[in-house]
Design a protein around this nucleic acid. Structure first.
Length: 725
RNA sequence: CGCGGGGUGGAGCAAUUGGUAGCUCGUCGGGCUCAUAACCCGAAGGUUCUAGGUUCAAGUCCUAGCCCCGCAACCA
């Protein structure tokens, strides 16, 4: 029997988790893990915090604290948020543990032994104030190629030129703002090129199974060729290079963080007092390994990590890497710095109930960015909760339970004499069904045969449960989570249809026996739904289990390995089982709640943009203002500047002359609508070069609270070249 | 020519190796009254971004173009 190892990308402990993280990796991983466990499969679900890298030392400095404090803060916050969200990790570990240091160093030494690491001496910028070598990201300067003044360490964003860090003209440290000095330093480079061919074979051998985005990204890297890459860094924060004389050098996170999956598994094994148990996962060809992550992480799991595992030998490689795209928030990317989006802990503060957590899981699941970037909106959250969870699933449970309270003493009906053999008939029906591929075939072939105890409606319901569960399982197996959820909800729809079509509120008077059987089936359906929804809505399903007095089965870790999924359509509740008083599973979300949340978003951003009142020192004399020559101008022509997202190239008539002005308004104004507009320009501004073109002045625009721009234009027609005072 | 993804009814998305364009929401009409003004049934609504091409057959493959988004910069 094969087993499944599941990992979800290690969250970087430099920020709080937001909904985008959940959509990218964690929710699908959790749904998958729970589904497999409910199918009786042996599963190990592993995750943990990624706690190294320069960003953490810099954050520590900014917050005047130590890296230890930073990582603790985020690690525990994220761990707690994950728990509340219902992540069913077997272990949530962290890469700052000794276990991980040992693992990483062991791998490093092994590569060294095998000659996979080569030492290279090179010159690098060193910030004397911050006492650190500067990674490429932390140096800015003038591009040696195009003269762009804001080029990054090794690449220019403007002309895309690649060069050596030390070729930068007028370099500045991003950390201290000072000019860094050049120092020589020694590093170990991983010979990635050695694995080019094996990785190509690995990728192509999986081509038929893997998602397209994953393949394309991986192939794109391979096509460019794998170059040697530094596997070490000059830093204090990280895992020391375990070699004599390597003081002040740590293993680069690229070559260390992903090993955290293995270390986490070791920690799990240790906690269970079976320290070698991790090997039966990582060094066992019966293990199927599925790595969940977002698109930014693809090559680390399809190329780098497999390469490290190949190098070490004996380890299994990822069987599949079902990477998602990104989930945006209300149309724009989640951003910590722009305060845009919903952070998990904020959501949990505002929507603390388990049912609301499930609503969030459901909404995200229905919007998973499986094939392209998707969007989370508050409105959608409300609609999903109210129209689907509450109206369809919640309402079905509620109407059945209420009906039982009123007519059956709050118990699963006892089957009347006439239908005493329903359970046996049910079994036979499912045996017949399981021989058929599709619901349609099954109904056509077997419906008539079972009409002695069942009505056509009954048969249709059982068929919906059986074939629905089968379909959902297929979707999970193929990593089609959105489809899985949609199909699950369709089973609840079928349940509602059954209730409607059998109309027990009529049969309760006309044919009480029939009514009892109907509600017996409905009760079993609630039990079945509580299993089918468990991967998506674990909290709610646990609640239902409580209501029907059943043991909660939601695919939690360490549960007994029983395949309940394939028998979900069979009755599980015995006659006469008491059903607890109705509990509303999903409360509706009011418009006002959503309005409130919408009002909050981007709040900090808007406030930040409001101008602070002028300080006395900011006050200028009239003469100062007179230095600025403002004139009206009419836009003659406008065009986009290629490769620039903000700039429009305008030709404006200033009355006496025509000038070219590059204006950063392309995000808010099209070239077409600019032509003919009368604008206000600063006429005596020194010309500047932008994107290699000259701009002779600037035009005035006001920042709006929404973060867009509004052009300043005269209220009435004034013509070109008028003075503005 | 930096890399990657994408343009499909009003909205959001699907559509295996080319083979009847589907789903959810919304809209309109009907049914029901057990239930959270919920549920169920039915209908309308598409030149699949544009222009060519390959094919018995194209949303899907090829060529050219237009337009979005992401990455490249802490962040799935």
């Amino acid at each position: 029997m094969t087993q499944t190892l599941i990992t979800a990308a290690l969250p970087y402990v430099n920020s709080f988790l937001h909904l985008g993280h959940l959509a990218g990796a964690y929710l699908p991983a959790d749904m998958y893990a729970r589904f497999l466990r409910l199918s009786g499969r042996n599963v190990l679900f592993v995750c943990g915090s990624d706690e190294h890298g320069v960003a953490i030392t810099i954050s520590a400095e900014k917050e005047h604290t130590t890296p230890d404090k930073i990582i603790d803060k985020y690690h525990f916050a994220n761990k707690l948020a994950f728990e509340k969200f219902g992540m069913s990790f077997d272990i949530f570990s962290r890469t700052s543990l000794p276990e991980h240091y040992d693992t990483a160093q062991e791998f490093f030494l092994d590569w060294l032994d095998k000659g996979l690491l080569v030492e290279k001496e090179e010159n690098q910028f060193y910030d004397e104030t911050a006492e650190m070598f500067l990674p490429d990201r932390y140096v800015e300067g003038t591009c040696p190629n195009c003269g762009n003044e804001r080029a990054r360490g090794d690449q220019c964003d403007n002309c895309s030129a690649n060069y050596n860090q030390t070729d930068l003209i007028n370099p500045k440290s991003v950390v201290s703002g000072k000019t860094p000095v050049v120092r020589s330093t020694k590093h170990w480079y991983f010979k990635m090129g050695d694995f080019q061919q094996r990785l190509e074979e690995y990728i192509e051998s999986n081509a038929s199974k893997w998602k397209d985005n994953v393949l394309q990204q991986s192939r794109s890297w391979l096509k460019q060729g794998l170059a040697d890459r530094a596997a070490t860094r000059d830093m204090t924060w990280g895992i020391p290079v375990p070699v004599e004389g390597a003081k002040g050098k740590v293993i680069y996170v690229w070559f260390e963080a992903v090993l955290g999956y293995i270390s986490a598994t070791k920690e799990w094994a240790k906690l269970r007092h079976t320290p070698d148990a991790w090997k039966s996962w990582w060094q066992n060809s019966d293990t199927e390994y599925i790595a969940f992550l977002g698109k930014d992480n693809i090559v680390f799991h399809t190329l780098i990590f497999p390469m490290l595992l190949m190098a070490k030998d004996k380890y299994i490689l990822p069987t599949n890497v079902p990477a998602n795209e990104f989930m945006n928030f209300e149309g724009k990317k989640f951003s910590k710095s722009m305060n845009w989006g919903i952070f998990l802990h904020d959501f949990q503060r505002d929507f603390p109930s388990p049912g609301q957590t499930d609503s969030l899981r459901y909404t995200i699941a229905m919007n998973l960015p499986e094939t392209k970037d998707s969007d989370f909106t508050w409105q959608d959250f409300q609609a999903r909760n109210n129209n689907e969870l509450a109206a369809i699933f919640g309402n079905f449970v509620n109407r059945v339970v209420q009906f039982l309270q009123k007519n059956f003493d709050g118990k699963v009906p006892v089957l009347p004499e006439r239908f005493a053999k329903v359970n046996d008939a049910w079994k036979l029906l499912l045996e017949d069904f399981s021989r058929e591929e599709t619901r349609e075939q099954a109904l056509e072939k077997y419906e008539d045969k079972h009409l002695r105890y069942f009505s056509p409606n009954d048969v249709a319901l059982i068929a919906a449960l059986h074939f629905g569960a089968k379909k959902v399982a297929e979707h999970y197996t193929r990593f089609r989570f959105r489809d899985a959820v949609t199909e699950t909800m369709n089973i609840a729809r079928a349940a509602n249809k059954y209730f409607n079509d059998t109309a027990p509120w009529k049969s309760v008077k006309a044919d009480p026996d029939e009514c009892a059987k109907t509600l017996y089936l409905c009760s079993q359906t609630i039990s079945a739904l509580s299993l089918l929804f468990a991967p998506i809505l674990p909290n709610t399903c646990a609640t239902i289990s409580g209501m029907i007095g059943a043991q909660s089965v939601t695919g939690e870790p360490n549960a007994p390995q029983i395949d309940r999924w394939s028998t979900v359509a069979l009755p599980t509740l015995t006659e006469g089982t008491p059903i607890a008083a109705p509990e509303v599973l999903f409360t509706k979300i009011e418009d006002s709640t959503i309005t409130e949340q919408v009002a909050k978003m981007g709040g900090t951003t808007a406030v930040a943009e409001v101008k602070t009142p002028a300080e006395p020192s900011d006050i200028i004399a009239i003469d100062d203002f007179k230095k600025i020559k403002l004139r009206t101008a009419i836009v003659i022509s406008a065009e986009r500047v290629p490769k620039s997202e903000k700039l429009l190239k305008l030709q404006v008539n200033l009355g006496t002359e025509t000038r070219q002005i590059l204006a950063g308004i392309a995000k808010f104004y099209t070239p077409e609508e600019m032509v003919g507009k009368t604008v206000v320009v600063v006429a005596n501004l020194a010309p500047a070069k932008l994107m290699g073109m000259e701009s002779q002045g600037m035009l005035l625009a006001a920042n709006t609270p929404e973060g867009t721009l509004a052009l300043v234009t005269p209220e009435s027609v004034v013509g070109a070249g008028s003075e503005v005072r």
